[in-house]
Design a protein around this nucleic acid. Structure first.
Length: 252
DNA sequence: ATGTCCGTAACCTACGGA
């Protein structure tokens, strides 16, 4: 089984590339973030032609998350309890419970959005702490947090900024500590494996990236994972998203 | 540190958000 997570920064703008990527990589399950579409605009019919069932939780202009699956999709859950924004969707695909997460950016340490980000991560932690431990689970998405300095191209640049603050890191660590494994660091542990590069300043070509997109799964499922990688090629070329997909391959 | 991109509203440009 191949599971991918990808912040596409508008599914409308990215559709040609997303479609091409799906054809080339043939993932079984795809977790999307920042579709920036209402549900009425979501390309359900085109995805169906590609062989995928899909569940979308859209909000129009901002946010929006989706799950695509060619191995079945059921028990769809939209939204995180108490959250008004379209940042969370869950579904079950062939026995695997998957969640697609778009964690609030935070903007700045003194911005109300930062407090919202910390509350959001705590809600996710509570949801995962209450989960059915007999069911395999995979949590993926854009977490807007770099867990360690190794996940940041130059920690000095991010002094006093969001994405690296102790409170954010602690909040994401608490999510992982509900019994999950950070798959991106399980394989290729000696590579930075950045997943996001700013559009500005030629950041991608300079290697100025952050690892802020993650695939997390329970410890039992982790023993069935054979490889995890970032598809940097998806960040190249014409009209890319500023994020690259993270892909995990499982013996399912 | 900021050389970009996206969607929107309203116009052929500016703005908020990331």
């Amino acid at each position: 089984m191949k599971v991918a997570t990808w912040n596409v920064n508008s599914l409308t703008a990215r559709w040609p590339r997303v479609q091409e990527w799906i054809r080339r990589h043939e993932p079984d399950v795809v977790l999307l973030q920042e579709t920036k579409q209402g549900d009425e605009k979501f390309p359900s019919a085109a995805l169906s032609q590609l062989g995928y069932d899909a569940a979308h939780f859209g909000q129009g202009r901002w946010n929006g998350v989706a799950i695509l699956s060619r191995i079945g999709l059921g028990d769809v859950q939209r939204g995180l309890e108490g959250d008004a924004e379209a940042r969370f969707i869950g579904a079950t695909c062939q026995g695997l419970r998957v969640y697609s997460c778009y964690v609030p950016n935070g903007r700045a340490l003194d911005d109300p959005h930062y407090a919202y980000k910390l509350r959001w991560l705590e809600s996710l932690q509570f949801l995962l702490a209450r989960r059915d431990r007999t069911q395999p689970v995979m949590v993926g998405g854009d977490f807007n947090v770099a867990l360690s300095d190794f996940d940041v191209y130059d920690p000095a640049v991010f002094q006093g900024a969001t994405h690296v603050s102790p409170a954010e890191r602690e909040a994401l660590r608490a999510v992982v500590a509900t019994g999950l494994v950070d798959l991106g660091r399980l394989f290729h542990a000696d590579e930075p494996s950045y997943t996001w590069w700013d559009y500005r300043n030629g950041s991608f070509h300079r290697g100025w990236g952050l690892r802020i997109d993650y695939l997390l799964c329970d410890t039992v499922t982790a023993t069935r994972v054979s490889d995890v990688y970032v598809d940097r090629d998806a960040r190249k070329g014409e009209r890319p998203s500023d994020h690259a997909p993270v892909v995990a391959e499982l013996n399912w």
